[in-house]
Design a binder for these strands. Structure first.
Lengths: 229, 229
DNA sequence: CATTTTAGATAGTATTACTATTATATTTGT
DNA sequence: ACAAATATAATAGTAATACTATCTAAAATG
């Protein structure tokens, strides 16, 4: 089994955790722990205990727990973009390319054996619950300058391009791209926790329902059929 | 000047802050302070210092700082809904009613003299930056049972109804409503902090731009023109 | 084999998010 | 007008958090 690694922005970590055993333990156990406790109750001390190491050792890899979260989230977006690349590479019709991309975004996430020490299902739940905390801080602008949101920006930009290929005249491709990427995760959350904020039911078909919601949103918006009808 | 008050869910507070001077000071100064420091760095100790009172006194009004945030956000959504009611009450055409509602959501927020001790402009910034923290917690389900998200749910429901009045056959009114309410604030944030995630420029016309983006999204989605063209 | 790198052990600090208790104002009902 | 209830202030205390610092041992590397 080939084990791949993403090249993430240097500022996300002090020492690249992908290269050492301790680093890989930090990643895999922090995913499990943040998923279980939520980011607020997650601490380096608890993580250290779980991997039978010490706080000080973890601080050698990550400046603080916010950077660790940024690292995980960034890894997630790299993974999504990589999956979109795979699933759109042999499609040529712009409409179908966009649809394939939307499928990746709205699909259920499950373990990807190319990345042995990451539980993608848990990581997806973390992104749903904690993504906004990565950029809704007083440090956004500084963090952005350091390139810490590169993964998310790159993915949204990719979707924006797919949108523009379908509807070159549509004036807001970037806004639409970020809106639907966020809407996909919001609707998943709402459907199971605040159901009155969603028209979708949290059952086995939920991912397909979200896809339909997003598809109708995008295609009707970028190619209002009346224009050429 | 008539001073109005909203009837907010009892569980949001221990003692209603609208009824006492100290309570009003807590509200008005916490808005200023959370806006300035961000929710993480905001503490009851700092707030107590600002209003020359004590931590213990503030704890008599609010169980903890999360409930205070929920209170402020809830107040905000009540205010928005109230403004939508005013601006749509004398409109009869469903399309125009929906448009008027969208205007309220996307418009620049400024001080409303009916509520003397609340700075709505600052409160709007708080909602943009901190809303997600109100429900993206491990306590969502419990908080939801207590009715703490009533304000947001009620507003989204109102928008969903306006949507259904325009397009009765559209299958996802609630999802669309929550999506656009959140998109409006996200785009405002992105346009000034992560501009590559938005097609809109953060200048004096930003609110009008956001309106156009949202309007095209909604109207094309709920009434795809081809259907009857 | 020497040296750099990596990790573990231990200790310490300011701050946070509370809880508890007591004392003193202020308001209210009669 | 006065007692009783309520509201607030003052003070103290606690477990936990998010770090920082230093020193030593082990392991990888050249």
């Amino acid at each position: 089994m080939a084990s791949l690694a993403f090249k993430l922005n240097d500022h996300l970590f002090l020492k690249d955790p992908q290269h050492t055993l301790l680093g890989q333990n930090i990643i895999s156990k922090s995913v499990e722990l943040i998923d279980k406790l939520g980011f607020e109750l997650f601490t380096f001390k608890k993580l250290a205990f779980e991997i039978t190491s010490t706080e000080a050792s973890i601080y050698r890899y990550f400046e603080n727990k916010h950077r660790l979260l940024l690292y995980l989230v960034s890894w997630y977006w790299n993974w999504i973009e990589y999956r979109i690349e795979i699933s759109t590479s042999n499609i040529h019709l712009p409409e179908d390319k966009l649809k394939a991309g939307l499928r990746v975004i709205t699909d259920k996430k499950s373990f990807d054996s190319s990345f042995a020490f990451v539980d993608e299902e848990a990581l997806h739940r973390i992104v749903i619950a904690e993504l906004d905390k990565t950029y809704l801080t007083k440090d956004v602008d500084r963090d952005n300058q350091e390139g810490l949101f590169g993964g998310f920006k790159s993915l949204c930009n990719k979707i924006a391009n797919l949108i523009s290929d379908v509807g070159p005249e549509y004036p807001f491709p970037n806004s639409l791209a970020s809106t639907i990427v966020l809407a996909a995760k919001q609707q998943l959350f709402f459907s199971s926790h605040l159901p009155s904020l969603s028209s979708l039911r949290a059952n086995s078909k939920i991912h397909d329902e979200i896809y339909k919601f997003i598809e109708s949103l995008i295609f009707n918006t970028i190619k209002p059929k009346s224009t050429h009808a």
